[in-house]
Simulated scan of single mutants.
Amino acid sequence: MAVLPSVLVTGASTGIGATYADRFARRGHDLVLVARDRKRMEALAARLRQETGVAVDIIQADLTQAAELAVVETRLRDDARIGILVNNAGTALGGSFIEQSTDDVARLANLNSTALLRLTSAAAPRFAQAGDGAIINISSVVGLAPEFGTAVYCATKAFVLFLSQGLNLELGPKGVYVQAVLPAATRTEIWGHAGVDVDTVPGLMEVGELVDAALVGFDRREAVTIPPLPDVEQWNAFQAARQAILPNVGQEHAAARYRQAV
């Protein structure tokens, strides 16, 4: 019987990351859990070892700290048992852009985008060389909608979506599957990071339902999975409209509408 690959999950101490760890453990995958909160990871690891019999390793790391991030990167490069990476770690900020400090927005972008990029870059070459592997990147529906008003957070999630789509096109022919998962409002602790009482947020999806739906998309090898979207044809139409623009933008001259002053 084929040996299942190990799964490395970031942001694994709670919420979406902890639920992914639970679901992959129940599928028989050994785990590497990464987060800042060792106590929570140890409790999760003990439960999953007892309930599923899988092996669980723990890496305590703050992914905004270069030295700690480097430890996880090295593990991804060197541990041939790891065949699935779940990039879930992320945070949010409260307030408007002009109310957020420069250091805070830089830290947000570092965790939500740069750390994810570095971990993906650490894993992808080995996966491609092996001709196998999967990368799950947790984006968000807000990455499609600047209208939601949290500009930097939305921008980081748009980056994750674009990166995932581009890498799926590039790495898919090499045997590596890349999935972008776009949750909407989900009951996790990220709301507290932004100073929002989660119980005041309407239309929340429970974490278990979100991850279970995302794993249906994973099993189907969807490039983009949007668990709360009822009509997939809306996404298909969005994609078709975007792709219809592409043949028209490679022009030698400016469009006629820009060749006349107002």
Score class of each variant (00 low, 15 high):
residue 102 T to D: 15
residue 141 V to D: 01
residue 116 L to F: 04
residue 154 C to E: 15
residue 32 V to I: 12
residue 216 V to H: 11
residue 88 N to G: 03
residue 233 E to M: 12
residue 54 V to S: 03
residue 229 L to E: 11
residue 151 A to R: 02
residue 41 M to K: 00
residue 30 D to S: 02
residue 67 A to R: 13
residue 76 L to Y: 07
residue 117 L to H: 15
residue 141 V to A: 09
residue 212 D to G: 11
residue 217 G to A: 00
residue 172 G to A: 04
residue 224 V to D: 06
residue 143 G to H: 04
residue 103 D to R: 06
residue 172 G to K: 04
residue 226 I to A: 13
residue 236 N to Q: 15
residue 192 G to A: 12
residue 125 P to Y: 07
residue 134 A to C: 10
residue 50 Q to L: 09
residue 237 A to C: 01
residue 187 R to M: 11
residue 168 N to M: 02
residue 206 E to A: 10
residue 4 L to G: 08
residue 34 V to C: 04
residue 188 T to Y: 14
residue 99 E to A: 05
residue 131 G to T: 03
residue 32 V to Q: 01
residue 20 Y to G: 03
residue 31 L to T: 08
residue 34 V to G: 04
residue 242 R to Q: 14
residue 62 D to A: 10
residue 145 A to T: 06
residue 115 A to K: 08
residue 70 A to V: 05
residue 215 L to I: 08
residue 74 T to H: 13
residue 169 L to E: 15
residue 132 D to K: 12
residue 23 R to Q: 15
residue 180 A to N: 09
residue 124 A to I: 06
residue 153 Y to E: 02
residue 223 A to W: 00
residue 39 K to N: 14
residue 26 R to F: 12
residue 63 L to V: 07
residue 83 G to W: 02
residue 198 V to L: 12
residue 8 L to A: 06
residue 144 L to A: 06
residue 196 V to C: 00
residue 51 E to N: 06
residue 165 Q to K: 14
residue 80 A to K: 14
residue 161 L to S: 08
residue 254 A to Q: 12
residue 248 N to H: 14
residue 122 A to E: 11
residue 70 A to P: 04
residue 188 T to A: 12
residue 9 V to M: 10
residue 258 Y to G: 07
residue 108 L to G: 03
residue 6 S to Y: 07
residue 220 R to W: 00
residue 156 T to H: 05
residue 234 Q to G: 07
residue 143 G to K: 08
residue 146 P to K: 13
residue 138 I to G: 09
residue 37 D to P: 00
residue 222 E to C: 01
